[in-house]
């Protein structure tokens, strides 16, 4: 079932590059918005963040602390007020003009007039990459990867929330992006579906070696998925600490109950509650 996707990974795949290559390098980043009522609002201040190629990093923090804004800055949808964002040594816009960046929104954000297959094809069609046949093969392979191949002719309105989100994940992955940005992608799902999706995501991530930044407000989700969890606080939005997950891969579902996992989870929770207790 995953064989087809494997083939694309091998084709576009992870080249042997110097180890510890920085995929994302953020230095001294601040972002202020001007408010309708006048004055400025500092959404992010003094952010420093480095993510190595192939790593899985989560951003956790209360709502309004600037997690979505971070992803928009990394993808170049917003530009920084000060500081720099580099993606593989380029500005996000430069990077995106030649390479692919997958983005999964909080809501699936599908086009209702396109079928599931049409939605997965959409970015490749607009970008004009690959031949028509290759695009179709890729879209179908990634729909298989998210286990929605039977639904390829359905319209988004005919799917459940979880299925729609899986379509949007297939869409983000279908043209083999080098970077995957996910904004609370499982927020609307029930607990069981959510855990299934977490395992599926880890499987895809392990298969493709794609550098992933995952936004969530669930600490256990962040810890379960990530190599590293960065904790953020609001007013102003900033990173107050980070934890390198000391957990074996592949991550098994039973891991969530292990003392080691629970202990690290509690440490994260303490960091989130008490921002002054800095930790790295």
């Amino acid at each position: 079932m995953m064989g087809a996707a494997h083939q694309f990974v091998a084709a576009t795949g992870v080249k042997l590059l110097p180890e510890r290559e920085l995929a994302i390098d953020i230095r001294g980043l601040s972002k202020t918005f001007s408010l309708p009522a006048g004055g400025n609002w500092t959404a992010l201040q003094g952010i420093d963040l480095q993510v190595e190629r192939g790593k899985f990093l989560s951003l956790v923090g209360p709502s309004g602390c600037g997690k979505s804004t971070m992803l928009r800055l990394i993808s170049g949808l917003l530009s920084p007020t000060s500081g720099t964002v580099n993606v593989f040594g380029q500005s996000p816009e430069q990077f995106r003009s030649k390479n692919r960046m997958g983005f999964v929104f909080q809501d699936a954000t599908l086009l209702p007039w396109r079928t599931v297959l049409g939605n997965v094809l959409f970015p490749m069609e607009i970008l004009g990459v690959y031949t028509r046949k290759e695009r179709l093969e890729r879209a179908e392979a990634y729909l298989e990867l998210v286990r929605l191949h039977e639904f390829r002719k359905s319209y988004p309105a005919q799917l459940s929330g979880g299925m729609r989100q899986r379509v949007s994940i297939a869409r983000a992955l279908a043209d083999s992006p080098a970077i995957l940005l996910m904004d609370e992608p499982f927020g609307a799902l029930d607990e069981i579906t959510r855990q299934d999706m977490q395992e599926e995501l880890l499987r895809i991530w392990a298969e493709t070696g794609i550098t992933t930044i995952f936004v969530t407000h669930s600490l256990s989700e962040a810890l379960f998925l990530s190599d590293e969890v960065a904790v953020m606080q609001a007013r102003p939005g900033r990173i107050t600490g980070s934890v390198v997950a000391d957990l074996p891969r592949p991550r098994e579902p039973s891991l969530r109950l292990k003392p080691n996992f629970v202990e690290q989870l509690m440490r994260l929770e303490a960091m989130l509650r008490d921002p002054d207790q800095q930790k790295s």
């Binding site: 929104f105 954000t109 086009l111 607009i126 970008l127």
Partner: peptide, 21 residues
């Protein structure tokens, strides 16, 4: 929606593409 607009930016869609698709 804002997100659909952002999706268009992320795939470098031109204005004409945004219009017809």
């Amino acid at each position: 929606s804002r997100e659909i607009g952002e999706l268009l930016s992320l795939v470098n869609a031109s204005r004409v593409q945004g219009l017809i698709h």
